[in-house]
């Protein structure tokens, strides 16, 4: 079976591609396991100074694989807990990488998918990509991504984005500070990402590593207790009968 995540290195720039395009790169346990493995490999690569994270196909990442978390079977086996903990741990691991990470948000980045973009040090997208955190609309709680969004755009803005739910354009995401650069069309994305990554790669690896480590320390990025507790909170809400009924109705499985 081909991997669900591809890792390519070209010079000092590595590219990590979520490769499950038929499911809009939704985060399944298998995909997350691959992400963990590839990022573990990267952590040892002293020759890489920039990591680009992107999605194969039209979407960046559609978020958690709802089919898994909305099934009675999945719930009974604690699949949702494993999935959420895996995502929380992966976010810590991605943030803890010594190289600078750039999310290349090529299309929809929803829920946990938008969270992945938020965990990266920088994010680039195009005006019409769909981004956002519609968790509350689905009856679930974006507790894993919340601390990352608070760090990225501040508590006040994060509060509004998460409570108001829905999705927004890439342009709006840029206005709110969720992404750092926005280009007019999808066709402009590669040029912009190459420019940003190329510029980042000119940094001295030692200086970049030290700076990123300090920033991680200052904003509590590597606070594992909060990250894991977020997964617990999110799982707790998912387990409520109200949330389960809503998810099943949405997935067409009957409430």
């Amino acid at each position: 079976m081909p991997g669900l995540v591809q890792l390519e290195v070209a010079g000092r720039i590595a590219t990590l591609t979520l490769h499950r395009p038929e499911a809009r790169n939704a985060l399944s346990l298998d995909l997350l396991a691959d992400l963990h493995a590839r990022v573990d490999e990267l952590a040892a690569r002293a020759d890489v100074t920039v990591l680009v994270v992107t999605g194969a196909g039209k979407a960046f990442c559609a978020g958690m694989d709802l089919k898994a978390v909305g099934s009675e079977d999945g719930l009974r086996h604690g699949l949702h807990r494993r999935l959420l903990q895996s995502l929380a741990d992966f976010a810590l691991k991605l943030r803890g990488l010594p190289m600078v990470s750039v999310a290349r948000v090529n299309g929809a980045a929803i829920g946990g998918g938008c969270g992945l973009a938020t965990v990266c040090d920088l994010a680039v997208t195009h005006c019409d990509s769909k981004m956002g955190f519609p968790e509350v609309d689905l009856g679930v709680c974006p507790a894993v991504v919340a601390p990352w969004l608070v760090r990225k755009i501040g508590a006040g803005r994060a509060r509004r984005v998460l409570l108001c739910g829905g999705v927004m354009s890439g342009q709006r995401a840029w206005e709110l500070g969720i992404v750092d650069r926005v280009v007019p069309t999808p066709a402009d994305l590669d040029g912009a990402v190459a420019e940003v990554a190329g510029r980042l790669a000119t940094g001295g690896p030692g200086a970049v590593r030290a700076t990123k480590a300090l920033l991680n320390d200052l904003d509590g990025s590597l606070d594992a207790a909060t990250a894991r507790r977020g997964a617990e909170v999110s799982a707790g809400v998912l387990e409520t009968p109200e949330a389960q009924a809503m998810l099943r109705a949405r997935l067409g499985g009957g409430a």
């Binding site: 998460l162 409570l163 108001c164 909170v233 809400v237």
Partner: peptide, 23 residues
Amino acid sequence: ALAAKPPWAVAATRAWLREIEDA
């Protein structure tokens, strides 16, 4: 519009944001 959203999800999200911000 906010009142029309699933109240359990909104309440849990508000409580979590309050906890992590800890103003």
